[in-house]
Each structure stands twice: as structure tokens, then as C-alpha cells.
């Protein structure tokens, strides 16, 4: 765990709008190719776009690929 994750519970990295990595996730809240909801500590992250899919998921890290058009964080 790095400093950011320790301080803010989770970390989001977006690479070129086509790949998104969330460290410290708490699972998926909803999943389809246009919208993916990810639970994080203290809220929810909603991703919208086209052809979204979970490329890899494990206990701590989640990699989402596809065309990401928006990212919303709600409490």
C-alpha cells in the first residue's frame, strides 16, 4: 500500500481514457458494458462509457478497460 491509498482508502489511475485501475475497491455494485459501479470505502464510483469490461479483478485491485466517458464519485 502506498501513501495515497493509506491516506485516502482507495486510488484511481486512468490511462488514456481507455484503462482504469482502482486499488482498494470493495467490490462491484453493478456491471454492464455501458456502466460499471465500484464500491469503495466511504462511497461509490460510477463509470460510464462504451464497451466497458473488467479486465482483471482480485481482492485489492480492479482493472477496467473500454472507452471511459465519465467517472463519478458519490458518498
Amino acid at each position: 500500500m502506498n501513501f495515497i491509498k493509506e491516506s485516502f482508502n482507495y486510488k484511481i489511475t486512468i490511462i488514456g481514457g481507455k484503462e482504469l485501475c482502482i486499488e482498494g475497491h470493495k467490490g462491484l455494485s453493478h456491471y454492464n458494458e455501458n456502466e460499471i459501479g465500484v464500491r469503495v470505502k466511504g462511497g461509490n464510483i460510477t463509470l460510464t462509457g462504451d464497451g466497458l469490461y473488467v479486465n482483471e479483478i482480485n481482492e485489492d485491485e480492479l482493472i477496467i478497460k473500454g472507452k471511459v466517458s465519465s467517472l463519478g464519485v458519490s458518498k
Partner: peptide, 16 residues
Amino acid sequence: INLLAKHNVAINRPIV
């Protein structure tokens, strides 16, 4: 997906 991820099972490209 959450169930498997919680048990530390690495999943590649789940398709519905």
C-alpha cells in the same frame, strides 16, 4: 465477481 474477488481469486474478463 465480488464473491470470487473477495476470496482472492484472480478473474480475467468476466462476460455476461
